[in-house]
Design a protein around this nucleic acid. Structure first.
Length: 743
DNA sequence: TTAAGTTAAGTTTTT
DNA sequence: CTTAACTTAA
């Protein structure tokens, strides 16, 4: 028996309103997971609903795992038959059972982004598309967007009629889908779209799941896309016991197809919906909350709500702009070290958040230098590492020989003397005869063009057959060990004897232990099951929030987490909000999305929040100059401590050229006062027409004195100016640094 | 024909 | 600074 008395009135409403559609607008830190878990317990204990009839959907495995844990603790017996899982794994579970009705084998492979790209490259080659003009990425983006909107290749082609570019995309989409099917594979988007297809067109399956899932709950609803909405709608139609929990202010995945109207228009789809707002925040201090409120208030078209708290005002928000990203990172590392030394926080209390993964390197260096333990979330996924992908590909081929991509990846790894030409010939033969690559390899003798290469291919085919036997007779861990031994993969790395190779061996060991633990923990371990688990994990899933290390991650990864002491680094216009969003055609909308991201970042902090920025930072090998992020200015100034953003003499170089940038950003939502300031002090790069001197002119430099300009080179972002100084001699310098005056 | 070495180009956010 | 494409040597 659980006590529901610890819940506030709004939360209780969310728990007790079990029938019909319910929309819970849950602000950051308002205890939505508590509501969901109590709701499940209430359904089972008070309403007598069988656990078998309950489904809870989340976006990440981590969220699913946490919810599962809390439900298990509350419900006890029978809890394991509740479906608590992500959109993707729920879909896989349904597809593994019924995919044959869509013409797929139920042991289909799941392609990650890397696999999709490899396949797309191959398609572009076959269709003779110049990937210098039409990027693989742009095709994949178009296809993904279509799938998120449930647009089939046929429909896409119809809509594309008359448009040359879109017709080409349609052709690629069709081919891509055909190849996936031939490989018996689905990409991430297919998992959702194919499940929707299944439910839509197979009445038997639809009825089965509608009967099964009588109570459905969806977490992070603001991030659902059209396909996911349709999936939920199909499952819930009939009883309509659908409870969605979300916060439109935390919708940050539009770029991935999230449809914010799913939440904004929920009441239109379900006119009889009960709407509940959770506005009391139990996480942050009042100052942090007010800062977040101040920022998000600049967005239009949101559901009106204002978070409040009973917590004390707490520390002010620290803000400081540094001269360089180097100093910024240095400050953060020192500050963490100092706070830990004083006993205010542990390493595990601290998180450093940033907009782009690229910012982590500098921070990482500083943390290492200061001897601070840390963990980076994101960047290169464990399962995306070369050695791990190689070995997984062997397992994939053993599991599903139709997977041409996996075959191609390993056929010459380690080197067997089967080169691109031989593979190409086998692939052509397979393509011409409508078979899979591996089938073609099995009949290598029958392919005349292969010639002597046959003698190298046959042992490879035999090897795979051997692995298949091992898998069937001795299990997964033995299979992987046998793959490692028979291919000599680790042997080869050992021989390299480099730091890098040792790292790779460590990763392989980790993979091995993951296989072992999967085999022990899974109820019914299968090769497909393992590969599926591996395909659907995100880096964030492995994060232990109680760890004794500082966590570094992107703002996107941080959603749903909380830390006592948070650093938002890189608060610079052009970085956050990103340059892309500022110059976009739909700038207003994109800036709003960035602003929501900022809101997410601020509300991760429980007690202490520091915002930092740098005037100058190296990005992809070039020095960039940024002004202060507009989001910093949107925080009520009385909440801010540390240096304020009054212009300082040091800022002068930033004033040089702002014209180009200014025009591009329409700052409708920025307060007037801030706008005037921005106009004055908003430098990014020096424009050509801002150079007041030319070659041959006499100039004066602060340190070097007077001289003559010899040469000006356009260095892309900046100008490289060569000056022959009267005293100091010939110097090369960047225009933005030199601050040369014409005489 | 393969494999290693060199050069060039490209980087928002990700289940 | 990394990854992919190209070149050249074996």
């Amino acid at each position: 028996m659980n006590s529901y008395e610890t819940l506030n009135e709004q939360q209780k409403l969310g728990v007790f309103t079990t029938e019909g559609p319910v929309l819970i607008l849950a602000g950051a830190g308002s205890g939505k997971t508590r509501v969901l878990t109590h709701r499940v317990a209430y359904l089972i204990e008070e309403k007598g609903v069988a656990p078998y009839h309950i489904m809870a959907i989340t976006f990440t495995n981590k969220a699913a795992g946490e919810m599962r844990e809390r439900i298990n603790a509350m419900v006890g017996m029978g809890a394991e038959s509740i479906w608590v899982s992500t959109f993707h794994s729920s879909c896989v579970r349904m597809l593994r059972r019924f995919a044959d009705r869509l013409g797929y084998d139920t042991s289909f492979a799941i392609y990650d982004a890397d696999d999709s790209k490899t396949l797309m490259k191959d398609i572009c080659k076959r269709l003779e598309i110049d990937t210098k003009v039409y990027k693989e990425k742009s095709f994949l983006n178009a296809i993904s967007a279509a799938k998120n909107e449930l647009i089939s290749p046929e429909e896409f082609a119809l809509q594309a009629a008359g448009d040359f570019n879109k017709t080409r995309q349609a052709q690629v989409y069709r081919e891509y889908q055909a190849r996936l099917k031939a490989n018996n594979a689905m990409d991430f988007d297919d998992l959702i779209m194919k499940t929707v297809e299944l439910l839509k067109f197979d009445t038997e399956v639809r009825t089965f799941y509608q009967e099964k899932f009588q109570y459905i709950m969806v977490d992070e609803y603001q991030d659902t896309n059209t396909a996911q909405f349709e999936l939920v709608r199909l499952l819930a139609s009939g009883r309509e016991n659908l409870c969605v929990v979300g916060d439109d202010d935390q919708s940050i995945y539009k770029f991935r197809g999230a449809n914010i109207y799913n939440i904004l228009n929920f009441e239109k789809y379900f006119p009889n919906a009960t709407v509940i707002k959770l506005e009391q925040n139990y996480r942050s201090t009042e100052n942090i909350l007010n800062a977040a409120n101040g920022v998000i208030a600049n967005n239009t078209g949101r559901k009106e709500k204002r978070l409040w708290t009973e917590a004390p005002a707490g520390d002010k928000i620290f803000y400081q702009q540094f001269d360089s990203a180097y100093e910024e990172a240095d400050y953060i590392a020192r500050d963490i070290a100092a706070k830990v030394r004083r006993g205010e926080y542990t390493y595990g209390d601290c998180a450093i958040l940033y907009r782009t993964n690229g910012q982590s390197r500098l921070l990482e260096e500083k943390l290492i230098m200061s001897g601070i333990p840390y963990k980076i979330v994101g960047g290169v996924n464990f399962y995306a590492r070369r050695e791990v992908k190689d070995l997984l590909s062997y397992m994939k081929v053993v599991d599903n020989a139709q997977d041409d991509l996996a075959v191609q990846r390993i056929i010459n790894v380690p080197k067997r003397g089967i080169g691109a030409t031989s593979i190409g010939r086998a692939a052509d033969y397979a393509y011409a005869n409508g078979m899979n690559l591996f089938e073609a390899l099995e009949r290598a003798q029958e392919i005349p063009s292969l010639g002597r290469a046959v003698s190298k291919i046959t042992p490879f085919v035999d090897l795979i057959h051997h692995f298949r036997e091992v898998c069937a007779n001795r299990g997964l861990a033995c299979l992987l060990q046998e793959i490692i031994d028979a291919t000599g993969y680790v042997e080869e790395l050992k021989a390299e004897n480099t730091e890098e190779a040792r790292g790779r061996i460590d990763n392989i060991d980790e993979l091995l232990s993951k296989v072992v633990s999967y085999e022990q923990e899974a109820e019914e371990p299968t090769l497909s099951g393992f590969l599926e688990e591996v395909a659907l994990v995100a880096d964030i899933d492995s994060l232990d929030e109680d760890g004794s290390y500082v966590v570094l991650m992107t703002l996107h990864s941080a959603k749903g987490l909380e830390f006592a002491n948070v650093y938002l680094s890189g608060m610079e216009d052009g970085l956050f909000p990103s340059y892309m969003s500022i110059v976009s055609d739909h700038s207003d909308e994109e800036i709003e999305e960035e602003r929501r991201l900022c809101y997410v970042g601020i509300t991760r902090a429980r007690e202490h929040l520091a915002l930092t920025g740098a005037r100058m930072r190296m990005m992809r090998g070039e020095t960039q100059y940024h002004g202060i992020s507009r989001f910093v200015r949107e925080i009520p100034q009385e909440l801010i401590a540390g240096s304020t953003w009054e212009p300082k003499p040091k800022d002068s170089f930033a004033g040089a050229g702002s014209s180009g940038y200014q025009k591009m950003s329409s700052m409708k939502s920025t307060p007037l006062a801030a706008q005037t300031y921005q106009a004055k002090n908003f430098g990014t790069k020096i424009q050509k027409d801002t150079l007041v001197y030319g070659e041959g002119d006499r100039v004066r430099h602060v340190k070097f004195g007077e001289g003559t300009v010899v040469q000006i080179n356009d260095g892309g972002r900046d100008f490289e100016v060569t000056v022959e100084f009267d005293q100091a001699g010939r110097k090369k310098m960047f225009a933005s640094f030199a601050k040369l005056e014409k005489i």
